[in-house]
């Protein structure tokens, strides 16, 4: 009974939202009369598609100074676990506008996305640089906005000269992990990716390449140039396919 009342209330609220501006006080009084309080916990209409935004720096083992805008690993991972478990969520949209960040945290998020059993689609808007590249390609299908860019450059230790061969090897292995992941999850070949990574004369302070929109698609890194509309359409298509596959399994 109580549930029904709440349901009705939340439905009323949603239905009545456009008119809310006309008579806000009467709606409020109605609420007080009906439930004796103004703050009604809404039964949120569960969205089929959830959305994760990867912005700023990807923060890993070390908390970055507070002026950095960060995407925290410990926020995203539990959300992905919840998305995987919740049967009501059918698809995930990943929106990237990141400058990069921690290698291990970035790869962790990428692996989680790549192994998620539900359809995933990513859009690179603005920028998906450095460790944002594996995250972008980890999804089932990836989009890049026409104006968006992705910087591909080698992993290095803050521009310092590497003195010990072991350090170099460690960095090289770290880089290999990124390269392997990207080549495994996208259509780019290792050779092309490394060519882009070690290209000279493209970036002012670094070696590497800045690929913009269509170039990312041409190199095979990203699947298609597009924005929100295309990405949602693709995600819905993938969700339909996923549903049919599951049906087949049950029968």
């Amino acid at each position: 009974m109580d549930n029904e009342l709440q349901k009705n209330e939340s439905e009323n609220q949603e239905g009545g939202e456009p008119q809310k501006e006309d008579k806000p006080s009467s709606a409020l009084i109605e609420k007080i009369q009906q439930l004796g309080q103004t703050n009604v916990p809404q039964l949120s209409t569960d969205s089929k598609i959830h959305c994760l935004t990867i912005i700023g720096q990807i923060e890993g083992h070390l908390a970055l100074p507070p002026q950095n805008k960060t995407t925290k690993y410990e926020h995203l991972i539990p959300q992905l676990v919840a998305i995987e478990q919740n049967p009501k969520i059918e698809g995930v949209l990943i929106i990237l506008n990141t400058v990069g960040g921690d290698v291990e945290a970035g790869l962790a998020i990428s692996e989680m996305l790549a192994t998620l059993s539900k359809p995933t689609v990513s859009i690179v808007l603005g920028g998906g640089h450095s460790i944002g590249v594996p995250i972008a390609v980890s999804c089932n299908y990836s989009f890049i906005a026409e104006t968006a860019t992705m910087t591909i450059h080698p992993i290095r230790l803050t521009g310092l000269v590497i003195g010990v061969p072991a350090t170099f090897e460690y960095l090289d292995k770290m880089q290999e992990r990124v390269v392997n992941f990207v080549t495994k999850h996208s259509n780019i070949s290792e050779e092309t990716f490394k060519d882009l990574m070690f290209a000279k004369g493209n970036l002012t302070r670094d070696i590497g390449t800045n690929v913009i929109g269509i170039e990312a698609v041409k190199t095979g890194l990203i699947d298609e140039v597009g924005g929100l509309g295309q990405a949602m359409k693709k995600l819905n298509e993938l969700m339909e396919l996923h549903k049919e596959e599951n049906k087949g399994l049950i029968q």
Binding site: Q57, L64, P66, H129, S130, I131
Partner: peptide, 22 residues
Amino acid sequence: MILYTMMPYELVFPDEADSGMK
């Protein structure tokens, strides 16, 4: 920790510790 970012190190870790954050 290794940062793989196109942001310069000085921007990620500025010298002066700004403790004005709430």
